[in-house]
Design a protein around this nucleic acid. Sequence first.
DNA 1: CAGTGAGCGAGCTTCCGCTTGACTT
Length: 798
Amino acid sequence: MVKNLVIVESPAKAKTIERFLGKDFLVKSSFGHVMDLSKKQLGVDIEHDFMPNYEISSDKKKIVSELKKLSKEAKTVWLASDEDREGEAISWHLANALKLDENKTKRIVFHEITKTAITEAINNPRNIDIDLVNAQQARRVLDRLVGFELSPLLWRKVKPALSAGRVQSVAVRLIVEREEEIKNFKSISNYRITADFKIASQNGIKLLKAELPKRFAKKEDALEFLNKCKAAEFSVASIEKKPAKKSPAAPFTTSTLQQEASRKLGFSVGNTMRVAQKLYESGKITYMRTDSVNLSNLALSTAKKEISSLFGENYVKIRKYKTKAKGAQEAHEAIRPTFINVHKIEGDNAGQKLYNLIWKRTIASQMSDAILEKTNVSINISTTKEKLVAKGEVIKFDGFLKVYLESGDDDNSETQKGILPPLSEGEKLNLQELIGVEKFSLHPPRYSEASLVKKMEELGIGRPSTYAPTISTIQKREYVIKEDRDGKERKFNFLSLKNDQISEIEKIEKTGYEKSKLFPTDIGTLVNKFLVQYFENIINYNFTAKIEKEFDEIAEGHKIWNEMIKNFYSPFHSQIEDTLEKSKKFSGEKLLGKHPETDKNIFVKIGRYGPMVQLGDTDIEEKPKFAGLRNGQSIETLTLGDALDLFKFPRNIGSYEDEEMSVAIGRFGPYVKHKSLFYSLAKTDEPTTIQTERAIEIIEEKRKKIRESIIKEFKEDTDIKVLKGRWGPYISYNKKNFKIPKTTKPETLTLDDCKKIIKSSGTKTSAKKTPVKKTVTKKVAAKKISTKKTTKKVAVKK
DNA sequence: CAGTGAGCGAGCTTCCGCTTGACTT
């Protein structure tokens, strides 16, 4: 029998702690929350003080029964989940789910995973902090109420299966509003003057680049300035040197890791988290979901030792960083290498790169400032009062720059600073060329996944564990899309003064190229418009900050959680009912124009399956004609001509093997239909012009591919086939797929072998799937909006 | 994967945060 059972949140943490505690302690993990509001229903009893209806999560049943068994045998159960709001609730849920005896249950917390910290925690147990738990209940219930009342409203007013929530809807709003800003942005141009001087030095001719601090709004003004400089003499007016310093950035949190991995390694937010998770599980880094910039004393002292031995003692500067993030809960350390003396690790490329980034950032954070010397050279022009300026920067002491420099979001800074050639005051300068370039002002940048995370963190919306999932949700719902967009060509004027000659030419540059940026879709834009119109108070940028304050008051015991929820819910629910009653269907309908031949109206709007065009009105007897928009088309930019093209489908394009072929646009793009089979067109095919010959080619290509994917067929039973797929060979039967055991060669399979595999795996998958499938529900969520529900209550400990 | 769209109505969809694997055609 084990005397002591310790329960933590993560299995990797459990393993480490067990090493410190010795054989009297068994350390297990709960894998996060084990209980949650019921999945299908609202899970909150509005009639009875918002009593939550908790259930053991379906994927946690196994672990809960195991922990229950172990806890019965143990003399003392130590609940060691994190010290924040969610962690406290996890302990409370464990106490309820495992039916723990209060007398043998102890709650402990530790901030560092070291023997001393853990022993100290064991020596100072406390009880579950019910105020903190209540703050979590309030958070959970509010999110459920908002999500489960707003979403059904969207199903009825906009489109089925949509979703809205306190966090995701604000994330979408940020992207939609940024796009509007960009659309309304008016780029203005001005003229930037730069000069290149030739400087003779010992090592040959060097170039000195200088700039006029002032810009000219008009081309004429820039030309006039160039003219003035035609016969001018240039000389150094003054040389000014100023010391400056740069400090390292704080160690990584989840959000800053995601940003830097995106900028420096090109990782998506989700990819960064997957790679980090692996590093954590193999013990190479500390926990990767954190909002803390704090490093443990142990980490600080190893960093100090490491820096001294690598670079010398003058490179060490131990620093304590303070978090700036709103609502940070700081249950963990910053993200750092577990062993700071390990510079490089084995493993896959992505893991090594990310580890390296984390190592450098951690080390740099404890290094001295870089000392710089900035030089400003002012240059006289004999024919005008204006002065040119040349800027240089020299690193006097590199400090932390030896290992790491944080990247910025806009990496296209124009002025490159470096070492200036040797100059002296009064020195005459030899002009090579004076240039005036037309520059256009830039619209605010679109969000990338990482810069959206940064913005959300600033607003206090979402948590380290949800940044990546939220970003994937809003893409899965097709509110936003991540994509590259080609730039456009733009003309600009280029003026030059060289050898006393002024020339003026028009050049072309490419502008507006976007790589992996987030764009709102038509649906995202429409849903946002609906929510801003009717629920601005909920998707307001300050809403989360406001309720977080109240959650804090609950945690401090100054406020009762269900009273707070009641104060929120009454007006919110009336708002839902009002909107349900008063607002019309929100389809974003727009009249594009009239059909040139039939004179019928043509509309563009969001339908049941997304954006579409409609030919003819709905209130007349004749049924209107519909067609979905094609990939890449949007309600915003669709023209009447585009709409007319869409109504040309299905197009008959001749016949093949005595059957007709037609081309149309479907849910998954353009296709050829032949003998009631579908063949997708290639991206290079244009469905409006494609002809018989090419269509036959497409059909034959597909047939060939299918033939090639067959490994084995059986004459006795044509339903069963052994096929080659993306993940290797598999058995196909009745449109279902079955895995082939790795030990058997697919070519050697007989029909009986296949039937056996189908039978054995068939029972397994069905056994797994049946409990997930829902049983019987009596009421429909969409209708529940304005009706009272009956939920079974589960006893909740006060 | 599946190639729709009004209206009728049944039955479905949905939130945020805390954790990992199992699984994909």
